[in-house]
């Protein structure tokens, strides 16, 4: 009768949510791609410069910060804008994406209680959108690298690995935080404050070396710093990150994703009740 093979829904006999949600996401993959496209289109469609904002935004941000802080770190960090922008891009990808995911679940998740779509659709689409922005913004970064004559080495070939690890971590964090945002509305505000503080507590604008030794030792406990280093080292230091850092970030990313996916899928059925 219908064009698709009929399937049977049985609320009492379904795979564990951990698996089921993943299967459903695969089934609805076209929806995720459409949503990613729509977020991008909506953001830039009505602006005069359109997609150029995606390129211009990181450039302007770098120029402003480089003018403000460049002199301070001139000797410690040659080609300061390269250091700054590579760190900034990784930081923005992780934090803006997670903030956006929380907001979408708390306010825009209305569709989830009106019609069945996989609960993780929004979060995955938001992270996908963030990933696209992140990749596009590597273009202005290469522009600055070229403009300043910063050396480019084979270590850049490691970047796809860095990006994948960052994306897995971000997805895990987004799943955890968006679950929290549905149950506690003010977790969005709390997270925003933490992100603001984190920006200054993480060596993004400044080198790790400016911190007193008593503080810099603690930085290995700052996951954001580790992930930023994973992305920044191949670009700025022209070196593949050392094995310890790679192992730590891979483990951290997978653990976060596992925790996020578990928590999110276990609470997913409650979302339609709480949103």
């Amino acid at each position: 009768m219908a064009e698709q093979p009929p399937f049977i829904y049985d609320s009492a006999q379904r795979p564990p949510p951990f698996v089921d949600e993943f299967v459903q996401l695969l089934r609805y993959r076209d929806l995720i791609f459409l949503m990613i496209g729509n977020i991008l289109k909506n953001r830039y469609k009505r602006s005069m410069l359109g997609v150029f904002w995606m390129l211009l935004n990181p450039l302007l941000q770098t120029i402003v910060l480089a003018v403000a802080f460049g002199a301070m770190f001139k000797s410690a960090l040659p080609h300061y804008p390269v250091y700054l922008l590579s760190g900034l891009l990784a930081w923005s990808f992780m934090t803006q994406t997670t903030q956006y995911a929380m907001g979408v679940m708390a306010t825009g998740g209305g569709l989830l209680k009106r019609i069945y779509i996989p609960r993780a659709t929004y979060v995955v689409a938001v992270v996908g959108n963030g990933l696209v922005n992140f990749l596009v913004s590597i273009l202005p970064l290469t522009l600055i690298v070229w403009f300043l004559g910063h050396p480019v080495s084979a270590s850049w070939l490691f970047l796809p690995v860095s990006v994948v690890i960052l994306a897995l971590f971000t997805l895990g964090l987004a799943l955890l935080l968006s679950t929290a945002s549905v149950f506690f509305t003010d977790s969005i505000d709390i997270y925003q404050i933490l992100v603001q503080a984190g920006f200054f507590l993480t060596p993004i604008m400044y080198p790790l070396a400016v911190l007193p030794e008593s503080l810099s030792g603690w930085m290995v406990l700052n996951p954001f710093f580790l992930f930023i280093e994973l992305f920044r080292t191949p670009i700025y230091a022209s070196a593949v990150p050392d094995a310890g850092l790679i192992a730590a970030t891979v483990a951290l990313a997978l653990l976060t994703l596992l925790a996020g996916w578990t928590v999110f899928t276990r609470k997913a059925d409650l979302l339609a009740y709480r949103l």
Partner: peptide, 21 residues
């Protein structure tokens, strides 16, 4: 329409559901 899952009990159905909700 599978928007919410029952707290208790069992819902079964066959085929594709078109919700004109």
């Amino acid at each position: 329409a599978q928007v919410i899952r029952p707290t208790q009990g069992r819902v079964r159905l066959r085929g594709r559901v078109a919700p004109l909700l």
